[in-house]
């Protein structure tokens, strides 16, 4: 539904972990971007391995190629090191996917605050992610936990201050 698959998605070797180190680096980089882009496009913040293996993300029915569970775990571990994935359990059955890191979200939100002049204003967290002013923003419908984490970063740099559990004041 409107998602632009990268060219690699139709290239059979993309679904086999490569042996050559250089080749493998390029391949896993491509997978990392694909996973993030995919979650970004469909506004997904969580990935359950069992579901994902059956989803179009890791299974290209057109060329009859699918990623093995082992390969998916390997790539998610790379994303985990980059800070885009956080495992939710030790068994690695599901994870949270940050197609932007919390710091990136913080930057984006503060840029938006400056653009529409919310400085020195108090607003609710719900207003930021679901309010009318943010409908065209990337963080619209952002996961509540991610929002809080991002605002905490802004707070440490003195750009915002959380008020209670539902409010925030930008500077």
């Amino acid at each position: 539904s409107g998602f632009n698959w990268p060219w690699q998605y139709d290239f059979p070797p993309f679904f086999t972990m490569q042996k050559n180190a250089d080749t493998k680096f390029k391949q896993t980089e491509a997978w990392c971007s694909l996973i993030l882009d995919y979650h970004n496009h469909f506004n997904l913040f969580r990935l359950r391995i069992a579901d994902a293996l059956a989803s179009p993300l890791f299974h290209n029915k057109a060329i009859d190629r699918r990623m093995s569970k082992q390969a998916v775990l390997e790539i998610l571990d790379i994303l985990n090191k980059k800070g885009n994935v956080e495992w939710e359990d030790k068994e690695k059955t599901s994870c949270r996917v940050f197609w932007k890191t919390t710091a990136q979200w913080a930057d984006i939100i503060f840029k938006w605050v400056n653009e529409i002049g919310l400085n020195n204003t108090v607003c609710t967290l719900h207003e930021i992610t679901n309010g009318p002013n943010s409908t065209n923003q990337e963080f619209h419908n952002l996961d509540a936990q991610i929002l809080v984490d991002a605002l905490k970063i802004l707070q440490t740099t003195g750009k915002a201050e959380l008020i209670g559990e539902d409010g925030v004041k930008f500077f």
Binding site: W7, Q8, F11, P12, P13, F15, T16, Q18, K19, N20, D22, T23, K26, Q27, A30, D64, R65
Partner: peptide, 18 residues
């Protein structure tokens, strides 16, 4: 070249990754 190890057996493709 790069490999494609699917059910159909091991095949090799030009290394488009690089």
């Amino acid at each position: 070249v790069c490999r494609d190890d699917a059910d159909q057996g091991l095949r090799f493709y030009p290394n488009l990754f690089l």
